[in-house]
């Protein structure tokens, strides 16, 4: 091999190695860190896996918020206007969290069918509905007609 070809071969090998390393890293992280979204009907029908990290979204049901008196634990129900799911969360809820507001929670389903949230997101525009909720509610409406 001429020195020039040797140089080119090293470049190509280096590129192939680097690219596969990065692709591997990306694929691995992606497979570990994607969170599937489930509507409350799907969860109530038992479609959501227990223990896996998922996202759940819906409207907070009126008069469903129950606070613990001695800690920051709070329980509420969310709905897609078909089925409800109970959510438990410990911590400070976002400012726009209130009854009738669309929220998205991240966390896991426990064995009792309660969603244990470690993060609750309410969007900062009160007219704004997360696309996931909007779509799952649209499907419900279409099915009803």
């Amino acid at each position: 091999m001429t020195p020039k070809r040797k140089k080119r071969l090293t470049i190509i090998l280096g590129l192939v190695f680097g690219t596969s390393l990065i692709v591997g890293l990306v694929m691995f992280s992606l497979s570990e860190n994607i969170n599937l979204f489930y509507s409350t009907s799907q969860i109530a029908n038992g479609e959501a896996p227990v223990g896996a990290r998922i996202r759940a979204g819906g409207m907070v049901v009126d008069n469903s918020i129950k606070r613990s008196t001695d800690s920051l634990k709070v329980q509420f129900a969310i709905t897609d206007y078909e089925k409800q799911v109970l959510v438990e969360f410990t911590g400070i809820l976002p400012d726009l969290f209130r009854e009738g507001q669309g929220i998205i929670a991240q966390g896991t389903m426990d064995a009792n069918g309660v969603f244990q949230a470690d993060e609750v997101l309410a969007k900062h525009d009160e007219n704004y509905m997360p696309p996931e909720i909007a779509e799952s509610m649209k499907k419900k409406q279409e099915a009803a007609q």
């Binding site: 691995f28 992280s29 992606l30 570990e32 860190n33 994607i34 969170n35 599937l36 979204f37 996202r55």
Partner: peptide
């Protein structure tokens, strides 16, 4: 399906 990609993905790829 509907998914979201969480911060751990970005941290795992970005930081190294």
């Amino acid at each position: 399906g509907k998914i979201s990609v969480g911060p751990p993905y970005f941290n795992a790829v970005f930081v190294p």
